[in-house]
Design a binder for these strands. Structure first.
Lengths: 144, 144
DNA sequence: ATCTATTCAGACATAAAAGTCTTAAATAAT
DNA sequence: ATTATTTAAGACTTTTATGTCTGAATAGAT
């Protein structure tokens, strides 16, 4: 993954939630155990996602997390931007300078196309797309 | 920058060296001062680059660093791979699984195209290209 | 009402990245 | 030979990312 562990865990947890019945509450430990990722860390990540209205939670005995809306309505860009500083990807490969269309670097530096590709991918795909990928893999028994 | 500080400093330092007379020795402090980056840290980075034969060094009174070959012969992939684990970029956006052409993920997941774009950029460009970018910017007085 | 499972919130701990410092070894100039 | 300058190497510190723990708040079950 080119992003942090937090983003990786978030994407996996969200796909997990997408695969459950839409109204089911899923406990942090249930998710963490199923995905084999650190439970308390996932808890913090889910709280961040909750603040951005990507998941909903309820406390108490049968509490847990669920998606705040349908997977197709949850864009990857929105998810990733919760946990990553995507401003980084607006910088030129060369250094910290910003690289925009009205600056010559963007003409010379094809890096611009690369970073637009990354950002575009995130903007044009949703959780539903990721979910489909995982389903394909499961169907074909792609090993860990 | 999507890469680490070390990579950023390395690219800047190498472009700096490319702009000097080919046989000149350039001291770490001279480079670090010119680029306003931490001197001792740069020293370690240059040692890593030396071990990979990207720069040469000589000790003593009029010692310093210089490029081991012409800028056009120094590929960005070679430089970046010294300081980054580029294996990361072969992983699927979804998780740590490897995503290759003979696996279904690569057909569904356009992420594959994104990461090939990144890797391809590095493989198809050299220090000389970066140097040209910097020259353009300097000529047009692009501010910091 | 009480018990218990659960999230919430934040403090705490560990690991990795980034940066600093010190000392040794090499070499050119004096 | 001595000295000043420079890289080489590694220990050390700081900062950020990752991960853990604890206790309080909440709400369903009994």
């Amino acid at each position: 993954m080119i992003y942090s562990k937090a983003t990786e865990y978030a994407l996996n947890a969200l796909v997990y939630l997408a695969e459950q019945a839409p109204d089911d509450r899923n406990g942090v430990h249930q998710i963490a155990d199923a995905l084999d990722i650190p439970g308390h860390f996932l808890g913090k990540i889910l709280q961040d996602l909750r603040k951005e209205k990507i998941v909903e939670s309820s406390r108490g005995r049968s509490g847990g997390f669920r998606l705040a809306r349908a997977p197709a309505e949850i864009g990857l860009y929105d998810v990733v931007s919760v946990l990553e500083d995507l401003q980084r990807y607006e910088m030129c490969i060369f250094d910290e300078y910003e690289c925009t269309v009205d600056r010559p670097c963007s003409m010379v530096c094809e890096w611009n196309a690369v970073k637009n590709h990354i950002t575009g991918f995130l903007q044009n795909h949703s959780l539903a797309d990721l979910q489909m990928v995982r389903q394909f893999r499961a169907d074909l028994d792609i090993p860990k």
